[in-house]
Nucleic acid binder design. Structure first.
Length: 291
DNA sequence: AATAGGCTCAACCGCCAGGGT
DNA sequence: GACCCTGGCGGTTGAGCCTAT
C-alpha cells in the first residue's frame, strides 16, 4: 500500500490559480490566518476546491505580503552565487538571506539564468588564469635558455589537418629542450578524425575544463596522438588514454615541467583511433615537437 | 505568417523530518 | 517504539511566451 495522498485528487482543482481563487485565499488568511493547518484550510474557504499543499504554496510564493517580484539585482546575484558556492542548493536557506524572495523564485532564477552566468564567468577566469600561468612558465623557461621560440597560438579550426600533417613523438622529459611549448586554442567546434594511431602519445593537452559539466568531460576521449585530461571526483586530474586506460595524475596543472615529469612512463602507449569533438572555447595547451 | 525550438516560472511531485498520539 | 499527519524542501514538469528562421 502506498502513501495516502494529502487530499482527494479527484475533487480538487489543479493548475494555474484564477484571480478569484487568489482573492478567496488571500482574504481568508488575512482575516483568520492559516489556523496552523494547511491541509484543513481549503475546506473552510467557501468555493475553493484546492489541495492544502497547493494553498500553502500559492500563499508563500505569490500571495503573502512583502514579496518582491521582478528582476534580481546585482547584489542579490552576488549573494545567491556566494551562498550556492558555500552551501549548495539549499534554497530555503538562501531565500532567508534575501527578504522578499522565495526559495522557488531563487531556484528558478538560478536554474535558468544565474547558473549560466556563473559558469561563463568561471570559464573566463579559468582561461585567463591558465594563460597567465602558461606564459609565465614559458617566460621562465625562455630565460633559462630551454626554449627559444616565442608563444605561438595555433588555431586548430583554421588548420584542421594540423595534427595529421606532422609526426610527433613524445618528448622524453630529458629532451624537453627540443620541444616548443605552444598554446593551442580551439576557438570553434572542431573534430579531429582518423588520426594515425601508430605514434605513441606525443601531444600533451591541458584542457581548461572546470567550467564544463562532468558528463560532457566524460564524453571526451583521447584522439590519436592526444591525451585528454579529466577531472576526478576528488579534485585531482587524470589523463585518459582511451582504451589503454593508462593515466597520469598531476596536482599542479599550471606547471608545465611537472606535467612533463608526470607524463613520463606513459609515452609508450599506442593510442587507439578515435574521433573526438572539441567544444567551443575549450582551451588546450600542447607540447609538440617541431624539429 | 508560420513554425520550431528555447526559455521562463508557476505548480506539482515525492521524500523526509518532526511532532503528536 | 510505532504509526500517522503535516509542513517543508528540492527536483521536475509543462503550459505559455518569446525569438529566430
Amino acid at each position: 500500500m502506498g502513501r495516502a495522498p494529502c487530499c482527494d485528487k479527484a475533487n480538487v482543482k489543479r493548475g494555474p490559480w484564477s484571480p478569484e481563487e487568489d482573492s478567496k485565499l488571500k482574504s481568508y488568511i488575512q482575516q483568520y490566518g492559516t489556523g496552523g493547518n494547511w491541509i484543513a484550510l481549503p475546506s473552510k474557504i467557501v468555493g475553493l476546491k484546492r489541495c492544502g499543499k497547493s494553498c500553502r504554496l500559492r500563499w508563500l510564493n505569490y500571495l503573502r505580503p512583502n514579496l518582491k517580484h521582478g528582476s534580481f539585482s546585482e547584489e542579490e546575484d552576488n549573494i545567491i552565487c556566494s551562498l550556492y558556492v558555500n552551501i549548495g542548493s539549499r534554497w530555503s536557506v538562501i531565500a532567508a538571506q534575501l527578504p522578499g524572495r522565495t526559495d522557488n523564485d531563487i531556484k528558478n532564477y538560478w536554474n535558468t539564468k544565474l547558473k549560466k552566468k556563473l559558469l561563463t564567468k568561471q570559464k573566463k577566469d579559468q582561461q585567463s588564469q591558465t594563460r597567465r600561468a602558461f606564459r609565465l612558465n614559458q617566460e621562465i623557461k625562455r630565460e633559462n635558455g630551454n626554449l627559444v621560440l616565442p608563444n605561438e597560438v595555433i588555431n586548430i579550426s583554421q588548420t584542421p589537418n594540423y595534427l595529421q600533417t606532422e609526426h610527433y613523438s613524445f618528448p622524453n622529459p630529458s629532451f624537453i629542450q627540443n620541444y616548443n611549448l605552444k598554446e593551442i586554442e580551439f576557438s570553434d567546434n572542431h573534430q579531429l578524425q582518423g588520426i594515425n594511431s601508430q605514434y605513441p602519445c606525443d601531444i600533451y593537452f591541458q584542457q581548461d575544463q572546470l567550467s564544463y559539466d562532468p558528463s560532457t568531460i566524460n564524453n571526451i576521449n583521447s584522439a590519436g596522438l592526444a591525451y585528454v585530461n579529466h577531472q576526478q571526483t576528488d579534485g585531482s586530474m587524470k589523463i585518459d588514454s582511451g582504451a589503454n586506460s593508462t593515466f597520469i595524475e598531476s596536482s599542479n596543472w599550471g606547471d608545465i615541467s611537472s606535467l612533463v615529469s608526470d607524463y613520463e612512463g606513459c609515452h609508450q602507449q599506442t593510442m587507439i583511433q578515435e574521433d573526438v569533438t572539441f567544444d567551443e572555447s575549450m582551451l588546450f595547451y600542447g607540447m609538440v615537437q617541431t624539429q
